[in-house]
Structures are given as C-alpha cells and as structure tokens.
Design a protein around this nucleic acid. Sequence first.
DNA 1: CTTGCAACTTGATGTGGATCAAGCGCACTG
DNA 2: CAGTGCGCTTGATCCACATCAAGTTGCAAG
Lengths: 244, 244
Amino acid sequence: MAIAKTRDTCAGCPIRHRAVCAYCDADELAMLERIKSYATIAPGAPIFFAREPMRHVATVVTGAAVLSRTLEDGRRQISGLMLPSDFIGRPWRDTISYDVTALSEVVLCRFDRKAFETILRDTPHVAERLLSMTLDDLDAARDWSVVLGRMAARERVSAFLLALARRLGTPDPKVPERVTFDLPLTREAIADALGLTLETASRQMSALRRDGVIETEGRTRVVVPDLLRLQEEAQDDDDGGELG
Amino acid sequence: MAIAKTRDTCAGCPIRHRAVCAYCDADELAMLERIKSYATIAPGAPIFFAREPMRHVATVVTGAAVLSRTLEDGRRQISGLMLPSDFIGRPWRDTISYDVTALSEVVLCRFDRKAFETILRDTPHVAERLLSMTLDDLDAARDWSVVLGRMAARERVSAFLLALARRLGTPDPKVPERVTFDLPLTREAIADALGLTLETASRQMSALRRDGVIETEGRTRVVVPDLLRLQEEAQDDDDGGELG
DNA sequence: CTTGCAACTTGATGTGGATCAAGCGCACTG
DNA sequence: CAGTGCGCTTGATCCACATCAAGTTGCAAG
C-alpha cells in the first residue's frame, strides 16, 4: 500500500480536475470540462475490475478507494489507497491489473479515456502534470516496499498510521504535533494493506494504544498525541515533506 | 523489487536513448544527442545516493543496477532492478529517496537533468514516452507488492526467477519453454529484493532445484526447463505479456 | 596447481506472526 | 429498547522463517 502526497487542489473550485492540471489556461480547462462527468459509487462497490476494459480515467473528488490484487486462493494485497485529488486509470491501456474498490461513498470526476488521451497528446501542460504525479506515485510505491519487505508488524502499523496522519490529519489548533483523523479502512483492509492478518493488525493497534502512541475513539477515529513519537515507531527518518 | 517490461530499443543503434523516445524525428534525436554523455560505473559502485543532489537522468545501456533503501539499523530493501533500456532519475526533483548501486559494470547514457527537463517541456513525444514508461513502472511496482505482502518464501523466489526469466531469458532453440539466464544478483541481493534472509533465499533455490523447477550451473546461471511449471510455483495466472 | 576468501549451502534452534477459537461492543433493525 | 450481527479484541497454540553456527564450493590471483 502506498499513499501519495496530496496534490494542490483548487479547494473552492468545483472543477476538481485542477488536480490533473493545476496551471491550465481557460481554454484548456473548458476542453477538460467538456469531456468530464461525475459518478457516485456506493461504499464497498467496485469502481474498476482487473482485466476488464476501462472506458474512463478519473480523479477522486470525495471518499476513499483501494487498489488491490487477489490471488486465486483468496489472499489479498492492497497496493494503494486513493484519496481526494488522486488519479485513477491507465491512459493508453484498455485494462489495469488490479481492482479498484470504494471504501466509503466515492465521488469521481471522470474523463472518457480516449478523449483524455487526445488531450494528453495535444496539451503538454496536462501530460507534464500527469507525469509528475505518476513519478510521485512511483516514488511512494517504491518507498512503501521497505515497509512490506523489511518491517515488523508494529512498525508496519505505525508507518501506515503515520502516512494517514500526514495525509488526513487535522492538527490540534493549540498543539500542532497532535493530530486527529478518521481511518477510512476496516482492520481487515489495514491488514491487507500491510501484509498482515487482521488479528495482528488489531493487536498492534492495541499495543500502540497501551503504549500511548495513539488514542482511539470508536472504531475509526485516531488521535496521535505526538507525531514525532509515531515517527520513531515507524522508523521514519524523514522530515515529513515526503510521503510516509 | 519490481522489474519492468523491456522497452523497444533500437538494438543496432548507438543512440540508446531511443529507449526514451522511440518515435522522435531527426531534429529531436539530434537535440537529445547534444546533451547526452556516457558513463561507466564499476561493479558495486554507487550511481546515485538517496538525498544527494542529482545532476543527471540516465538510461541503462549495459549491466544491471538496483534501487534500494536501508534503514538505520542496516535492514535493506531492494525496490527495483534496473536493466538495459530502463530509465533512472527523477525529472523536476533534486533528490531521490533511494540509493542506486551498480551490480555489474554499468554503462549509462546520461542527460543533464535541467536540459532534459527543457526537452520534456518542448518535446511532447519525449514526455509522452516517459509518461508511458513511468506508468508501466508504477504498475510493476504495484503488482510486486503482492509478492512482498502475501507470498511465502518459495513463491517469492519463484516469482522473482520468473520475472528474470521473462526479462533476461534466452529460449532454447529446440524447446521454447526452456529458458536460460544469468542471475545478475548475489543471494544476499536476492534476499534483499524479496524481504527474506539470504539463508532462506538460498534454501528455497535449493528446494526448487531439488524439485526440478530449475537447474543451476555455477553460481549465476539458471536454467528453467519449463516456464509454465515455474509460473505455477509463482502463483502467476498471467499470460506473460505483462511483467512478472 | 594451490591458496585464500567471499559467496553459498546446510543444519539446529528460537521466535514473531499466523491460525484457531472465544468473546465483546457498537450500530442498525424491528 | 431488545435483538441481531458484523467488526473488533483478546487468548492459546503452531509453524514458517529468522537467527546462530558450521562447513563447502567456486573463482580469482599468485
């Protein structure tokens, strides 16, 4: 599972595909506007299936989705968490090799794939922006491999919570190193993202709570009283400018 | 560790950056030609260090290199194997978050990063080609996460050998499903790529040899008598058109 | 050929996380 | 407000892989 950086979105602007093209001029935006459509997907519903023809590419506007692959015997690995401003799809390919599934209700801003490919060809701005985003995603995916390949269960859970805290966390107005966020995934999904069983994921969450690294409210809300403490647990020697 | 697909290279052509731009016209190629330089790196030598300023981007011409991250306590994860035609570098960023190390003697075709960024901006061909390559790399990295997150040691080693066989293997002229290749990595590097210890990697290689899935000659040569058999071991339900 | 060493193999033992197995508690539903 | 069930927690046991520890082999340099 890799979580990319948040892109600059134009928060007040209904044209969320600014996530794709932050610097387009009015004509270019109008062109994107013409081929876009919105879609709302119910929690748990599939967005795309591996190996099935994909007519669209899309940007997540609200909600959360996961990219996952499932082996024949049922073992599942989540390889990415898609949050608002993330781009889903594969220009110049009919199919992708993973399933995309909504976790919560997801609103997508979709573009017809063929039309988007034409825009990519004709509008260097958009292609360059998408290249930069894809390079970020690739860095994130490569960084995440050390979590899956080399980290112990406690470190994996910590690294995961840290990445979510950086992407979703709201800092306490009085204590900026204290952040709060809502987990968009069940324990089972967390386990599938981290290459663990749900029992181990749950136990490590409990251990982190016992040790004061996190606090929890209900099933989903997580409070990190001290981001630096969590960062140590996650073996993260990074300044937070990057992804977790 | 992820291994990308082989790109179309212009084999007889000294301008190896055709890997970057397969369809450039003569003027565009001449422009690339002007900013390129070759570099030869000794086996084991670093090519780039994580967090150090990068002046170049490059394409691997011959040899093999790995992308790796090392935690403070020495645990190392290899997140990519770079082979001829692969692109190394991060346009629009001064640094990368992983080390790049030569395994064998590596010849690089380098481009000054700033100059390459200008070309990317001015030559949609090149940007589009690089975007397509980066999307392939991202798919490969995501596909690989299921190996690190969910596969047993024997499956990991099998998946790794399968990926190498597809990328490097020479088919037997009489028996096309029988392929031979040379391992560009030591057992330790294989272990670091698969999130295992070198002992476990070695034991699984021995087990696969005992079971007739592979044959070995010396330390590096591997013969796969039946690719389909290896594919089953690697839980690969794929037709081989994609990466392993 | 022989020497030396790094790379590899194999064996014995230990352990973290998987697996198996109960419960618990919160959020709907009637 | 009780009933129902899914999502979660916690405990007991097991096993695949890590760790520790010798050997062995292949290869390069003399």
